[in-house]
């Protein structure tokens, strides 16, 4: 995969490797510290819990990685999550009177299609009309949230099909299904990003869109596709969250875009695009998840959680800055 090669003029090989693995090392240190601080941390049940808790943000962050790699941003992920979740819920709810309850898999398909459609709208406007991603997805943040309220009439959609709830609450052998879905999505995304020309084009568009265009790449299509991918994964996350909370909540996913962007940035992906990795994002997602979990276990106030997360984001970006500075 196109991890950056070590630049010349770096201190020895050892430090280069340390640098490459910095997020993984940070993760290990945090896990080690937490396992010393509380005996419950390293238990299998807790680790599974953390995985389950990060699976929603994980899915959003995968899509966000694609988007940010092209040099864009998707602020609408939380709202698209809510929309996808509510649409899915409406088709498996016995209490939602406008729509009959249908086969849960068909319902999930419809929910995913709804989120994908919103992503496609983002993609078309950004790639064809050239509205900047920040503005377009800021608009979509509001539009999708409003549509969610309209669709659900502002009320939680409850009394959901029991089979459907398994998607959020069941197990695939020892792994909770949300975790399994997240891992599968991650693997597919990894293959797409690192084993297909599409993935290479994503990096190329973020690295230098003009150069990519002259090299014969349909830049508009690549940009369109990353927002479609993001919309799809948001709806998937929304479906998982709905099944996990047993209700299609129209307020779900408020400000989730912040955690997704944070995970991507902590993972070393450059906000200007072209540089970063999916593995880094995975580590970023886990880092945030472990910190939230650890501070809960240690009964640290959630105020500190927020301060802590903010410092990690800024710290990660500062490290990147020092690195590129010494590269000159």
């Amino acid at each position: 995969m196109p991890e950056e090669a070590s630049a010349p003029g770096k201190p020895g090989k050892f430090w280069t490797i340390v640098w490459e693995l910095r997020i993984a090392i940070a993760l290990i240190i945090i896990c080690f510290a937490l396992s010393l601080a509380t005996p419950y941390f390293m238990r299998e049940r807790n680790l599974i819990n953390v995985l389950r808790q990060v699976s929603v943000n994980g899915l959003l962050s995968i899509g966000m990685t694609f988007v940010i790699l092209t040099g864009g941003i998707d602020l609408s992920v939380g709202s698209m999550l809510a929309f996808g979740g509510v649409v899915t819920a409406s088709f498996v709810s016995n209490a939602f009177k406008d729509i009959p309850s249908i086969n849960p898999f068909l319902a999930i398909f419809l929910g995913l299609a709804a989120g994908t459609l919103l992503g496609a709208i983002n993609g078309v406007v950004i790639s064809k009309v050239k509205v900047t991603p920040f503005i377009m997805t800021l608009g979509m943040l509001s539009i999708a949230r409003g549509m969610t309220y309209i669709y659900s009439n502002g009320m939680p959609i409850t009394d959901l099909d029991k089979t459907f709830l398994q998607v959020g609450q069941g197990y695939a052998s020892f792994l909770p299904i949300p975790v399994a879905i997240f891992l599968v999505a991650f693997l597919i995304a990894w293959v797409v990003l690192y084993r297909t020309k599409f993935g290479r084009y994503v990096y190329a568009v973020g690295g230098n869109a003009r150069s990519a265009r002259i090299s014969g790449i349909n830049v508009g299509f690549i940009v369109f596709m990353v927002y479609v991918i993001s919309g799809f994964l948001c709806a998937l996350a929304g479906t998982l969250l709905t099944a996990r909370t047993s209700a299609g909540l129209p307020q779900a996913g408020m400000s989730y875009e912040l955690d997704a962007i944070a995970a991507v940035v902590i993972g070393g992906t450059s906000m200007t695009g072209g540089k970063g990795s999916l593995i880094g994002t995975l580590l970023g997602v886990l880092l945030i998840g472990f910190i939230n979990n650890g501070l809960d276990l240690l009964s640290v106030s959630s105020y500190y959680q927020q301060v802590c997360k903010g410092m990690i984001i800024v710290g990660a970006v500062m490290l990147d800055y020092f690195q590129s500075d010494s590269d000159r």
């Binding site: 196109p2 290479r200 990096y203 690295g207 230098n208 150069s211 990519a212 002259i214 072209g274 540089k275």
Partner: peptide
């Protein structure tokens, strides 16, 4: 500006 993506590798 238009030839290379400087932050990508020689291979890419």
């Amino acid at each position: 500006n238009s030839g290379l993506a400087l932050i990508l590798s020689v291979k890419d």
